[in-house]
Amino acid sequence: MIWTNAIIQGLLTGGLYALLACGLSLIFGVMRIVNLSHGDFSILAAYGVVALAMHTNLILAIVLVLPVMAFLGYFLQRGILNRSLSKGALAPLLITFAFSIIIQNLLLQIFSSDNRSVQSGRFASMSFKITKNLQIGALPLLTFIVGVLLTLGLHYFLTYSRVGRALRASSDDPGAADLVGINNKHIYGIATAIGLFAAGIGGVLFGMRTQFAPSFGPIALIFAFESVIIGGLGSLWGTLIGGIVLGIGQSIGAQIQPSYGVLAGHLVFIAILIFRPQGLMPKQKGK
């Protein structure tokens, strides 16, 4: 029973990791940029909600912060990152790493290193009793549902919308995209906007579930990265599966001994790297 419980909790946490990861995966898929500041943007959104929620209610704070994240993504991409794309693979990496350091230290300056959390009141402690020993928290369940819905939404967006198709076209061959009238720079801006929007959702839910500090960005990035690699590069559903596998791994590890949780997740990642480097659900050739 303990193990069933651990697996279910891990599964639900996996939804959170998928939220943290899908933007990272999308940005890489379209521009081949690995956004080293991805986790920091998640934490930034969580702080944004904390700050706004002091003046207004939580829902409104979230509704206000997420579009700001998207705008921020669009303008950082068009203003700074697009310029670096032509300067080799190193430049965007260095710039996003610099973003990471800037965000962490700005947050430290404004909010100090004290732990914070996004207060969701009674909702945080609500849970559904399944059997005598098995309870599912409302918040983890919500996180999981949002994770699945976002993956689904992104899938439909990329498959059936005009801009979604343009994103995939641009990812395949930016030169050819240019020739059918697609402004790649705009498309890249949109990709980063969506990426940071998703990172923001992940960050806010993360902040509702656990306490966080400005230094938590890197660990969020690492979990996101492990989800992407476990799932398989370039596959949205793979990222969701990767997040779930990572979540379950951590939760089983933590069941053995609380301090082993994160380590167990890392070991799952290493095992995938050794035995199935293409990930669990790799992108099909040409697809």
């Binding site: 890489f28 081949r32 940029i33 690995v34 080293l36 693979a89 990496l93 890197p218 990035l221 690492i222 990265f225 492990e226 992407v228 690699i229 590069l233 994160v262 380590l263 890392h266 070991l267 990642f269 290493i270 790297l273 050794i274 480097p277």
Partner: peptide, 24 residues
Amino acid sequence: LVFRLSGGYFAIGTWVIAEIIKLF
């Protein structure tokens, strides 16, 4: 291990390795 990753993912991969060693 880490050479199975390339580009930016190599970068984070090495970082994860450093984290793992620290945890050990």
